[in-house]
Design a protein around this nucleic acid. Structure first.
Length: 726
DNA sequence: TTCTAATGTCATGAT
DNA sequence: GTATCATGACATTAG
């Protein structure tokens, strides 16, 4: 294909140049840019802008109707979706399932660990593992190695290269992708690396031999670690939780680095499923049962006691140097996050982590958890939650979880925050678009009987709707153009073109549900139950507008507080603003008391849409309006798509034209540098010895060999030229 | 006041 | 026949 491209491109250009030399004007741009899509695709490759797509079908295949498959932001979509899917796992405890992916990924690089021979890995790594503990140089070297490992993901293969003869290149690529996802999660390959764990196991074994560990310690740690294993929602891969979801997991996560071999086995067993010996399978079952037991038991206190009762002489306890009153929860998170190359991985989210002390001379692991302040300061910015919560919220959450709070419970992820994460999780499953989180929640609202339009304030609604209906239905221009600008809510999301009007899209969505667009992403739960805001102190300042469906007059006359309150005044303004933001169809829908939002009407698949219609007793007028709204909404989306596509096509054509012009100019310059061509009519000028220029095959008919009396070659059209080399 | 860009809507054809 | 999409044409609105 490449050669074909090259041939076509060069051939056409040469052809064009030759034609232009004989006076035939050829518009290269016309032929090469867009007028011949197949030719263009041959040369430049297929363009999604020219692909017809059934959006409603893709809606199902793309796990929701959030993004258009032709969207150039599809990569961002998947990236964001993956990140959000990781976040959603934070609030869930997921029992490690028998996923073989992790095991395949983390096979011993030497190939000596055949799954049923864990001891071989132990033998291979035992010496180095000991050196890591006792030798400061080695510790530093390991940290350096990890740093380099995480800095260059391509070098990750050196840590645990999947040296397996049976693996194909696709397998290796898949493994690397899975690894990268683990890296994104903050779990370095070492976390899953059998050899690496075996190394730690050796350390622990030595310590256990010294009588520095207790059996209860190990059992607690086993359960803790097992519970800390999460399953990637996207890949199904088990991985250690970086952010413990509850206090027990947090407090127990600290000893997870210094537990007994049984603990290590528990960590390994979920990852070695399918390839481990029957003993390991049995061990895994035991771990699983212990996990189930731990779910019903509160063991954090005992774990803490065990943790703090570690002998002071214990090198590991010295390393972690945890005071009993030290809030360790987030330190633990970071500590775990820093395992292996995770510290660098977390630098993806915050470069501050890179400035952390990587390793001390006596530490086995690069991150020193005793530096609680530093770690806590970085946690807020490095946590995944920080990716999705505004800094303000994140900062507040960090404060609540900071070391200044004596209660270690205060550092946990707030349950309400986890609810938010769950909500975003649901939004992911519906197509990631955050706007659709509101849509999804609206569905919940509808299911719970909390009608969006009618149940909030029916009395005021009727008044407002009456006014709006009279105005909107009578005068088509009653709604401003801003409403149209904002009405692209899930149109953009549904059809995929990520326009610059995301904010406006949100406004539209909020216009439907009555939220302030700025806070829409984080106030979903409060819509159903504002009291839940008490659990989210960082959201208390959010001025919720629950009067969105009230007419301004109703807002004035109703139970509005005195206008002296600036906050309330802004509410009123926002209500007015949102009312103005509504499109005509929204006004009409409210006037007709349509019990669901326009977004639903427009974006639901036809089956669900019909189901929705069947759920309600709607009049003919309502049904007609709903169908009109759906038709107009879809057409609006289509129009936006069409314009966007048209614009993209124009821009692409412009770019192609520029490129081709540049190439053409370059080729002409090169040609002119090689030869100076004179148009000499039929005969060469006197004094010049004609040298038959090498004619292009098929373009010139060499008449020299044809017995012609003229020496000059003859063009196909019969004209004769002489080409002389300067 | 006019022009222009952006957007919504309708009609129509295609799938 | 219906639903949906694509697109040209026109209307409206804001700047």
């Amino acid at each position: 294909m490449l050669s074909l491209k090259k041939y076509l491109t060069e051939g056409l250009l040469q052809f064009t140049i030759l034609l232009s030399l004989i006076g035939v004007r050829v518009d290269v741009d016309t032929y090469l840019t867009s007028q011949l899509p197949p030719l263009r695709e041959i040369i430049l490759g297929p363009s999604s802008a020219y692909t017809q797509t059934q959006f409603h079908n893709l809606r199902n295949t793309l796990d929701g109707y959030g993004i258009h498959p032709k969207s150039i932001d599809l990569d961002n979509y998947f990236t964001a979706r993956r990140l959000l899917s990781q976040v959603r796992a934070l609030d869930r405890f997921q029992v490690p399932t028998t996923e073989v992916n992790a095991w395949l990924v983390h096979r011993d690089p030497e190939g000596s660990v055949s799954g049923s021979q864990p001891s071989s890995g132990l033998a291979l790594e035992s010496s180095s593992g000991l050196q890591d503990v006792t030798g400061p140089d080695n510790g530093v070297r390991e940290s350096e190695t990890e740093q380099g490992f995480s800095e260059d993901l391509e070098d990750l293969g050196a840590v645990a290269p999947p040296v397996t003869g049976d693996l194909t290149k696709e397998d290796i690529d898949l493994i690397d992708i899975l690894w990268r996802q683990d890296i994104d999660l903050g779990a370095g390959r070492e976390v899953f690396d059998y050899s690496h764990r075996q190394k730690e196991q050796d350390v622990d074994k030595e310590q256990q031999d010294g009588g520095e560990q207790e059996d209860t310690w190990a059992s607690e740690g086993t359960e803790a670690l097992a519970r800390d294993l999460l399953v990637d929602g996207e890949t199904g891969e088990s991985f250690p939780a970086q952010f413990p979801a509850d206090v027990s997991s947090i407090t127990e996560a600290v000893p997870s680095e210094s537990e007994s071999p049984a603990l290590q086995n528990s960590l390994l067993s979920p990852l070695l499923t399918g390839t481990e010996s029957p003993f390991d399978l049995e061990q895994q079952w035991q771990d699983l049962m212990s996990i189930m037991e731990m779910q019903a038991m509160e063991v954090n206190t005992s774990a803490n006691e065990i943790l703090y009762s570690a002998p002071p002489g214990d090198p590991l306890s010295t390393n972690y140097s945890l005071a009993p009153n030290t809030p360790i929860n987030q330190n633990v998170s970071l500590h775990q996050a820093s395992l292996g190359g995770c510290s660098q991985d977390f630098s993806l989210f915050s470069p501050e982590v890179e400035s952390l002390p990587v390793a001390s001379s006596s530490t086995l692991l690069p991150l020193v958890p005793s530096n609680s302040t530093n770690l806590n300061s970085t946690f807020g910015s490095t946590s995944l939650a920080g990716l999705f919560f505004p800094p303000q919220l994140n900062g507040t959450a960090n404060d609540t979880a900071g070391p200044e709070l004596p209660d270690p419970l205060g550092g946990l992820l707030d349950e309400a925050m986890l609810d938010e994460i769950s909500l975003m999780d649901l939004a992911i499953e519906e197509g990631f678009n955050p706007v659709q989180a509101s849509q999804l929640e609206e569905e919940f609202d509808s299911d719970s009987g909390l009608s969006l339009d009618s149940s909030h304030s029916p009395s005021s609604l009727s008044s407002s709707e009456g006014s709006s209906s009279s105005s909107s239905s009578s005068s088509s221009s009653s709604s401003s153009a801003s409403s149209s600008a904002s009405s692209s809510f899930s149109e953009e999301g549904a059809v995929g073109y990520s326009s610059d009007s995301e904010t406006l899209d949100l406004e539209e969505a909020e216009g439907a549900v009555g939220y302030q667009p700025e806070y829409s992403k984080f106030c979903r739960m409060s819509y159903q139950d504002p009291s839940q805001l008490s659990c989210l102190p960082y959201l208390e300042h959010v001025g919720h507008n629950h009067t969105y469906n009230m007419a301004p007059s109703a807002l004035d006359s109703a139970d509005l507080p005195p206008p002296s309150t600036l906050k309330k005044g802004s509410k009123e303004k926002q209500a007015d603003f949102l009312d103005k933001q509504m499109s005509r169809d929204e006004h009409r829908a409210r006037a007709m008391k349509i019990p669901f939002t326009n977004d639903k009407i427009i974006n639901l698949p036809v089956e669900e849409f019909n189901e929705l219609l069947s759920k309600y007793q709607l009049s003919e007028a309502q049904l007609s309006l709903i169908r009109d709204i759906r038709r107009r909404g879809k057409n609006k989306m289509a129009a936006q798509n069409c314009r966007k596509r048209k614009l993209d096509t124009i821009l692409n054509l412009e770019r192609d034209v520029e490129d081709l012009q540049r190439d053409k100019a370059r080729l002409l310059r090169e040609k002119e540098n090689e030869k100076c061509m004179y148009w000499a009519g039929d005969y060469p000028p006197p004094g010049f010895q004609p040298q038959a220029a090498s004619p292009q095959p098929g373009l010139l008919e060499d008449s020299l060999g044809g017995g012609s009396e003229h020496a000059a070659p003859r063009w196909l059209d019969g004209s004769r030229t002489s080409v002389f080399i300067c």
